[in-house]
Structures are given as structure tokens and as C-alpha cells.
Design a protein around this nucleic acid. Sequence first.
DNA 1: AAGCAACACAACCGCCTTTCG
DNA 2: TCGAAAGGCGGTTGTGTTGCT
Length: 297
Amino acid sequence: MEAVKKEEMKKGPWKAEEDEVLINHVNRYGPRDWSSIRSKGLLQRTGKSCRLRWVNKLRPNLKSGCKFSAEEERTVIELQAEFGNKWARIATYLRGRTDNDVKNFWSSRVKRLARILHNSSDASTSPKPPSRRNKGQNVKPIQCFYPPQSFGLVEEEVTTASSSSSKILPYSSSDQVDEALRLSESGIKLEHQPFSFGTDPLMSEPHIANQQATIPFYPESRELLARLDNPYYYDILGPAGCSETLFALPQPFFELPPAERRCRHVSKDDEEEEADVFLDDFPADMFDQVDDPNQSP
DNA sequence: AAGCAACACAACCGCCTTTCG
DNA sequence: TCGAAAGGCGGTTGTGTTGCT
């Protein structure tokens, strides 16, 4: 009997009609009693599935289709260091973001980092093909790492507004973020702080050093980096050299304002402007420096 | 044009916690 | 107090898209 019920249960992508039914149900009864949607014969979906659909896609004021802003990225990094993989908790600090969003963002970020480190290990033994990402770009020898635009962006703007220390301010008002976004969209250049891995919030947090199960560095990468003379490289993997918390944490965000701008799929140019996500701003072949120990970091 | 890799995202699965009779 | 059902959450997987060779 149960098997028959399970067979009848629909899976896979949601259709617009199903969404409509679900929205109507929530409008009438509120976001609860998910299992009653099925028991009433409205949808052949599990209560779990209905809830997930609502929370991740149909809930009002979601930033669906929007890339993570620099501010959001930094917040996630900071909160992940603080809370670990508590995505639902972290998501409460980000308006319009779901735990799934945060989770996906983080996992792709970790994958990217792992791949870069893995490639760096490969590069030590074999020539590496040119970066796909930086094809056509004139990648200069790296004298000193600068942070991606992600870092320092909103922080700087907020600092300007408050004329105080450089901290992430709570989302008690959306005005600060709106202002920061507006300024960043208008192309205001912000001063970069000299950067090393030791100052990367992700890398420098002591919590991170204890979370290596979460960040799957390849063993060969660890060995490779451990051999490097540059102590900053070691900071990535070993005990963090800088234990100072760089940013104050924002406060949880519960009331969701109207949907945001800065959405993807606007135009290609916008997309390129937007491409300031954390690792994107590192030259993908930055680890080529590993090949030449004479070059200073 | 085809093939491939990287990426983003939606959705499912399984475990744990909470609620309720 | 206990057990079943529902809900919540983190991990994982599948799929479509994009950009490059």
C-alpha cells in the first residue's frame, strides 16, 4: 500500500500549475500543514517537497537568479567560520537567501578552491595549459596579491557612511546595503588593501583550520604548499597565523524587503561587471608562481 | 559545429528534532 | 511517557547553461 503511494508521488521539476496550487494553499492556510496539501489531493507531492519548493523558490522576496553580492559573500565566509555549515542559520543573516542558496554558493566556492590548489600541485610537475578564465588577458607576474573586489567593497562604503571602524553593519536597515550596492554599481573604485592568504577571512579564521573536512584540500596540494618558503601559503592549511576577527558579524535578518536588483541575465556586460566573486578575481593561474620560487609572493 | 569542463541551481535523500495524540 | 508523523536541515546528485578549445 505504502509502495503504491510512493509510486504515485510525483518527483522532479515543478510545473507552473503546481506552483500555483502551492501558492494558493499557503495564501489560504499559511506556510504550514504541508502534508495536508497531499492529503487533500491538491498535489501529488510530499509535504517535504512542498515545503522545500516554497522555502527555496516561491517564498516572497527571494533573490532568485541573483548572484551573491560582495557583501553577501563576505558575510557567508565570516558566518561559516563562526557557525560552521549551519546554512539555515547563516541564511537568516542574508535577506532573500535560502539555506540552499548559501549551501550551493559555499560548495561551489570550495570546489573551485580545491581545484585551484589541485591544479597548483599538477603545475609543479607538469606544464599547465593557459587558464580558460583569463584567456586573452595579459596576466602580469604577481608581485603581491590584492584582494578581490569582493573584499573591502561594501566594507569600505559602510565605513564611509559611518566614519568609524571597518565592520559589517547589521542589516537593521536595508539603506546601508542599498547605498553600497548603488555606489558599487556606479563604478566607484575602492582602495585595495595589500592582500595575502593570511588576511583572507576564510583562511585566517582558526575555525577554518579545524574544518578541513569541509574544505577538501588534496593531500598533494598540502604537501606542495607546505614546502613553500612563503609562510602565507602555509597559513591556508596550517594553523592560522592571524586569529583576529576581521569583521563584526551582521545580525540575523528576519523581515524581508522587496526583491533586489543586480540580478543575473540582465545583460552580458552587467554580468561581467558583476563577476567580482571571490575566487574569480584571482588569476586562475596565480599558482603558476609556484613554478618559480624566485618570484616573490 | 562538436566536445568538454566548469559552474549554477533545483530537487531529492537521509538523519535528527519537534510536535501531537 | 511513548511512538508515529511531520518538519527542519545538511549533504548529495542530476541537469541545464556557458564559455572555451
